[in-house]
Design a binder for these strands. Structure first.
Length: 423
RNA sequence: GGAGGGAUGGCCGAGCGGUUGAUGGCACCUGUCUUGAAAACAGGCAUGCGCGCAAGCGUAUCGGGGGUUCGAAUCCUCCUCCCUCCGCCA
């Protein structure tokens, strides 16, 4: 949610921001029209309520003196019924304003390059050598099937498409990756580990921006009202919903492993092979709550924390800054980490690190106090994958494959796999 | 699933249907005292929204919605959440 005052006082900047991210800039004008109507009505209605409160006090005073207040009561009857009518109109306007506010995406930070789609993203830096194989690099799903560690047929039988069963050392490798990532982030990078529910209520989904716009992208348990989380960002950010945090607690840094669930509606035919795009996948997520003045520093650090995993795994990757047109709904600025996939001869997203500024905080009511006397103000939230585990698994299979079809275990993972060096 | 109890400000906790945005305590802030601190004492201390250059004014908020009433933190009702007991159960 954007600051309504920003829309009122600086509509051109908001329009421009929306346009740059390919959103409907007329949202601003619809908002302003209703906002003005709403403010006029506010004035009128509050005047009437002021009168009502005054007369009500008079009645109280008269009653206590055991005097008659028939005239006042008569006026109150009339006033109250008129207030009630106006209140209904007022509630409708407020509802409309709220709906519009919730549908408006965040606007890009000034530093974000203006562009149309992913082709306009900018490579910021890269790491590692793209390995040359003396043979044709096989795809991760081919390797996984051959080694018997990825079983798509079994998954299709028990669930359907876009699911996978990890078997044997595959299951162990996935588990090793999760443990390694959590250890790195808790012990080296200073994050506190949490393990929250993966079923959340609609309010949580609204708080981080998945609802109301992206309902169809999530699994929904209609009988109970729960949603399956598409990312741990949801429960972890909502950990502090409706709270005012003391500034000396900031930045708060959480790391969270969770399974993630996505319907992937509208991505038919896209990434159907392998485990790149699944309905259920594992992810280790980093979430930060930061002071507004420091959030962009925190974004840089968070991105580097996510990168530390790829570096330790010695996987070649690059960091890409998303252009305005490629930005996600809630984000003001995003860096994607893209890991190298030899079989495809291309980089693929494995982490997305974003600063949401106060967009989510406003929706979720997360504030901080700059000092004990200060008024509470919205803080900034950030998050990034650290990393998508399934995609890391796939990247390891591809980058660590050997000619004979087996794979070398990355050095840092060996302690997590009983010291074995090959799968 | 069944039976009962509860939800009030950052926290604890009081609150006859009418000067209650709400007593009191803790925490916090300012001052006095002190070399400094503690203690003691005095004062201050909720948030959102609208209007206003501002001082400020108005309005709303006692888990959420609806109702009764001239008037609701207080009465009724539905919902949510928490607690206790029973049942079931990883």
């Amino acid at each position: 949610m954007l600051d309504p005052k920003l829309i009122r006082n600086n509509p051109d900047a908001v329009r421009k921001g929306l346009k740059n991210r390919k959103a409907d800039a007329s949202l601003v004008d619809r908002f302003l029209a209703i906002d003005e109507e709403w403010r006029e009505l506010t004035l009128e209605i509050e005047e009437m309520k002021a009168r009502r409160n005054k007369v009500s006090d008079q009645i109280g005073i008269l009653k206590r003196k055991k005097e008659k207040a028939d005239n006042q009561i008569e006026e109150m009857k009339e006033l109250s019924s008129r207030v009630k009518e106006l209140d209904e109109e007022y509630a409708k306007l407020e509802e409309k304003l709220k709906d519009l506010s919730l549908e408006m995406p965040n606007i890009p930070h000034v530093s974000v390059p203006v562009g149309f789609d992913s082709r306009d993203n900018i490579e910021v830096r890269s790491f590692g050598e793209k390995k040359k194989f003396g043979f044709k690099a096989r795809s991760h799903d081919e390797i996984g099937k051959k080694l018997g560690i990825l079983d798509f047929e079994a998954a299709a039988k028990i669930s359907g498409s876009r699911f996978v069963v990890y078997r044997g050392l595959g299951a162990a490798l996935e588990r090793a990756l999760i443990s390694f990532m959590l250890d790195q982030h808790t012990k080296e990078n200073g994050y506190a580990e949490v393990l929250p529910p993966v079923l959340v209520n609609p309010k949580s989904m609204l708080g981080t921006g998945q609802l109301p716009k992206f309902e169809e992208e999530m699994f929904h348990l209609k009988d109970d009202g729960f949603y399956l989380i598409p990312t741990a960002e949801v429960p972890v950010t909502n950990l502090h919903r409706e709270e005012v945090l003391k500034v000396d607690r900031l930045p708060i840094k959480y790391v969270c492993y969770s399974p993630c669930f996505r319907r992937e509606a509208g991505s038919y035919g896209k990434d159907v092979k392998g485990i790149i795009r699944q309905h259920q996948f594992n992810k280790v997520e980093l979430v930060k709550f930061a002071e507004p003045g420091r959030s962009y520093d925190e974004l840089e650090k968070l991105t580097k924390d996510a990168e530390s995993i790829l570096q330790k795994l010695e996987l070649p990757y690059r960091v890409v800054e998303l252009c305005s047109g490629d930005l996600g709904f809630s984000s003001a600025k995003t860096y994607d980490l893209e890991v190298w996939f030899p079989s495809e001869n291309q980089y693929r997203e494995i982490s997305s690190c974003s600063n949401f500024e106060s967009f989510q905080a406003r929706r979720a009511g997360i504030k901080y106090k700059a000092d004990p006397k200060a008024k509470p103000d919205f803080l900034h939230t950030l998050n990034g994958s650290g990393l998508a585990v399934g995609r890391t698994f796939a990247a390891i299979l591809e980058n660590y494959q050997l000619k004979n079809g087996s794979i070398k275990v990355p050095r840092v993972l060996r302690p997590y796999l009983g010291g074995i060096e090959q799968i």
